[in-house]
Write a protein that binds this DNA or RNA. Structure first.
Length: 284
DNA sequence: AGGGCCCATCGCA
DNA sequence: TGCGATGGGCCCT
């Protein structure tokens, strides 16, 4: 993990997003690098530089990381992802990732009891995947979303998840969380990122399982279902994954369909693709 | 009721 | 074989 996120110009993601959207739209005709560069208004050289800076990969390698074949390989490699932690004799389900993220859970009932007076801080910050909306409680990060269009829409999306809570803008409070979230080299055991999971028991157990998927790896909805001892609940797992409020930090983008298809993503499939490609670059 | 699913089939190249 | 497409089952909010 060598990349310095801080050195990236903020608008790189805008280009990447455009390029990805173009490619997925025409993915049958396999547009070449030059064609994609032209479409986003860059020379091939500039296009190359943007990807190098943003993902740490050449456009060619980046595109290769996004193919269905590559997704399938990712799933093959991650086939025994969850067994591994058992072999090591680690106790809790999220123990592996606990080294980097500590979490506490709150049921909807518990949440309701304190919701009226609960104050959530929020702030907007640049990220490798566009402008991010960070929501925190005094006990840790509770939400992470992305802005596509108006900030108010992103905020409303978050507010809807915690009816009754009071959202107050406070960039100073949220900024350190934003910085930490997108710099994997800052995810260290000594200073774990604190996270608060608010959801049903089922949802929380799914999200805890997500936290055990290492960066650059992937699994399927079905495997998560098996992992939490409900092997036939793959579909319900999908719904729970989709309701994860803390994008990226709770890595719901690392869950694919059994065929390797991307299936869905609350903040847009393009962004899910971008995250997977970006992580492929971080892990070399 | 209705999903960010999954499996078995089937029909086509 | 390897695809799309389809139908039925499954389980949580």
């Amino acid at each position: 993990m060598l990349t310095r996120v801080t050195e990236q110009p903020c608008d790189d993601y805008a280009r990447v997003q455009e390029a990805l959207a173009f490619m997925t739209g025409k993915w049958r005709s396999h547009p070449g690098i030059d064609a994609i560069a032209a479409h986003v208004g860059l020379t091939p050289k500039q296009f190359h530089d943007v990807f190098r800076r943003w993902a740490g990969l050449s456009p060619k390698d980046f595109l290769a990381a996004l193919t269905l074949a590559q997704a399938r390989k990712l799933l093959r490699d991650g086939a025994n992802l969850f067994e591994t932690s058992l072999e090591l004799g680690l106790s809790g389900p999220s123990r592996l990732h606990d080294l980097f993220v500590t979490h506490e859970a709150l049921s909807p009932h518990e949440y309701r009891k304190g919701a009226a007076g609960l104050v959530l801080s929020y702030g907007f910050h640049p990220s490798p995947f566009g402008e991010a909306l960070v929501v925190t409680t005094p006990r840790g990060m509770a939400g992470l979303g992305f802005v596509d269009g108006a900030r108010a829409d992103a905020l409303a999306d978050m507010q809807a998840r915690w009816p009754g809570a009071h959202l107050v803008e406070d960039q100073e409070l949220t900024a350190p969380y934003a910085a930490r979230a997108f710099q994997p080299e800052l995810w260290q055991p000594e200073t774990p990122l604190r996270v608060v999971l608010i959801g049903t028991d089922f949802e929380v157990s799914v999200w805890e399982t997500l936290l055990t998927i290492p960066m650059g790896q992937a699994t399927t909805y079905g495997r998560i279902a098996s992992k939490i001892a409900r092997p036939k609940a793959a579909r319900a797992v999908g719904a729970a994954v989709g309701r994860n409020p803390i994008s990226f930090v709770v890595p719901c983008h690392r869950v694919l369909g059994q065929t390797g298809a991307l299936t869905g993503y609350h903040w847009g499939l393009t962004r899910k693709q971008a995250m997977l490609g970006w992580e492929a670059g971080q892990c070399r």
